[in-house]
Write a protein that binds this DNA or RNA. Structure first.
Lengths: 101, 101
DNA sequence: CATTCTGTAACTTTATAAGTTACAATAATT
DNA sequence: AATTATTGTAACTTATAAAGTTACAGAATG
């Protein structure tokens, strides 16, 4: 079974939102965006391709430029980070026992 | 003016919750907690003293052990990260202009 | 007072975000 | 079609920081 709310589904990367929704609307090149945000073109490119996380610093920059909140970007990243760790560290986490409620 | 909701106030570190609420209730030593979570005693000590962030990995470990959610711990950390960056990088962020809505 | 627990210094290892430069490939413009 | 702009990415470097280990002094506990 699959659905939009499938918990096992890989969460959305902020870069996808940026790439699919924000950038087209802004009508701006990656190079221009990089200058606006004060980062390198490479950083922008890699975020758009979901090759690196949106860090707290990047979230603040993107948020300011786009009139959104840093939290909205970081929450996405966080959800993804947790999902990824649960995949890669499943064994380690399975060893942790819950305390009695 | 100061209040609990003061936006300029430094946000709470997850370590404070752990130190003040969770640990006392659990009746467990730092060393024991470290073993339970599968990390070093030093890591626990420093988190309790708010000397390091609660990373995604730590959030998952703490959450599993205490029957809470990784998100709740990471959200706190995130809010703190953003607050701290806005203090230290204020100049850089001030340079970023907002796009026309 | 003896044992346990805690804080932290010193040091090492590992990971990774981010920058710069460069170049080939693709896309857009005239 | 030819020119120019834009993009993706490799190679390399730098900087930061999370986490571990060991060790020891001081505080707390029994």
């Amino acid at each position: 079974m699959e659905s939009l709310r499938d918990k096992n589904r890989k969460p959305t990367h902020g870069g996808a939102i940026l790439r699919e929704d924000m950038l087209p609307a802004l009508n701006i090149t990656q190079g221009e965006l990089a200058v606006k945000l004060g980062v390198s073109r490479r950083t922008i490119s890699e975020i758009l391709h979901e090759k690196r996380p949106i860090t707290a610093d990047m979230a603040i920059r993107i948020a300011k430029f786009t009139n959104t909140t840093p939290q909205s970007w970081l929450n996405m990243q966080q959800t993804l980070d947790i999902w990824q760790l649960q995949q890669t560290n499943a064994k380690a986490y399975a060893q942790i026992e819950r305390v009695a409620a």
